[in-house]
Nucleic acid binder design. Structure first.
Lengths: 224, 224
DNA sequence: CCCTTTTGTGACCTGCCTGTTACCGGCTCA
DNA sequence: TGAGCCGGTAACAGGCAGGTCACAAAAGGG
């Protein structure tokens, strides 16, 4: 799930970015309105968090531009007491708003509510910790590393593990998720796929840090 | 987690199957009541989704048959407006119902709620006193100690003792629970397993504090 | 159509799990 | 006192699960 955060306040942008990343979303950041519009067009995120007071193009203009081509959920950030801003934002098609200051928890709750309304909350999170998955591109980025291309099966395996990041997923479940229904005796496929994925994402594939084996149980993705 | 879906409507069956599979469950499908009962007996699933209108044996009959031997969660599917069907289903021991048509999302939500009620989603670690068992990770933590990895059999033994924490569990019951049905003369296996488990969880395996012997009766887990 | 990439299959190695045998010590009871 | 039972411990062998390699089959792209 890709989200665009547009705010000229660097600290606030990073805070929101951090919060969303931790929650498992892939985050795009824009420092002003123009970049926000540009990024929206090139990346087509699934949700937009938009500050109203921005240089370049105000949140209103950005919202308007977005609404011209998409019904993507938009949350606007306002300062307390600017009632007319609120009204205008909602008129322009924003789905929700938050008055600054707000807690990260509140933001998350609002976002989840919006996604639920839009029927999008079933999509598996695309990121956790230092692992960021781009499903359309079939790539992962680990930390600051360059994107690595994944095959269809590798992508599905990683997606599955990512959706349960930090928890062990049993081999049976993985087999079912990745290959559909399959003779559960066929562990060899999973062994191979894990091996191949490790070659791509581990710094030392012989000593896996990310994709760890839970002997007798399954595999898990370790994120901190 | 195994789930049985019984519905004569092929499309609906596949849709439900797909939804549940995507959600990470193992799905068994039955096209009619008779097969549903047969499959239930041979596979003993953890949850059953049951259409009321089915050839072979109606959902009512299937539900009745299931309830004769199990308290497994059952969700029944009805068509809107058939109030008496609903009443009858709940009387027969169904745990929840859905009126067609319904969204996959709704089905999933209901299923998760049911599993939660039945205490079957083992997300929360099973614990008693200072012993905390993580079933999906195959680990225990004793007090503040580091997690200890357990083998399949050790896990099952400890799970069994933990479920009866503070009470003695007979050797025969342990044998049956851990190994399935087995020649009850085979005490040596249990002796060995207890010994191996003690090596892992006792501070002084020679003087067991946690996993104590009830001579002539069985074993018990001591928690305060 | 050919070449590359991806996916599936068999084989081998390793270490750990598990079942088995053996032996020890304590207790009970004839 | 010695046989019989029970529980604990040690040692070992077979088997299974997981990791790796090599190669074949299938899919995909030009």
């Amino acid at each position: 799930m890709k989200m665009l955060v547009a705010d000229d306040d660097r600290d606030l942008r990073e805070l929101i970015g951090f919060t969303l990343t931790q929650a498992g979303y892939f985050v795009l950041k824009a420092p002003d309105g123009l970049n926000a519009v540009r990024m929206f067009e090139s990346e087509s995120p699934d949700l937009v968090v938009l500050d109203i007071n921005m240089p370049g193009a105000s949140g209103f203009q950005v919202c308007e531009a977005i609404r011209k081509r998409s019904r993507v959920p938009v949350i606007m950030l306002t300062v307390r007491g600017e009632e007319e801003d609120l009204v205008r934002a909602l008129e322009l098609g924003a789905d929700d708003y938050l008055t600054k200051p707000f807690s990260p928890r509140t933001l998350l709750a609002r976002i989840k509510a919006l996604l639920r309304r839009a029927g999008m909350e079933n999509a598996a999170p695309l990121a956790a910790g230092k692992v960021r998955l781009d499903i359309e591109e079939h790539t992962v980025e680990i930390g600051e590393g360059a994107p690595v291309r994944l095959t269809k099966l590798e992508l599905r395996l990683l997606q599955m593990l990512l959706a349960n990041a930090g928890h062990t997923v049993s081999s049976d479940r993985l087999l079912i998720q990745v290959w559909g229904h399959r003779n559960s005796g066929d562990r060899q496929l999973l062994k191979q796929l894990v091996h191949r994925l490790r070659q791509k994402i581990e710094t030392d594939p012989a000593v896996p840090q990310l994709l760890q084996t839970a002997s007798g149980a399954g595999y898990k993705l370790v994120v901190e």
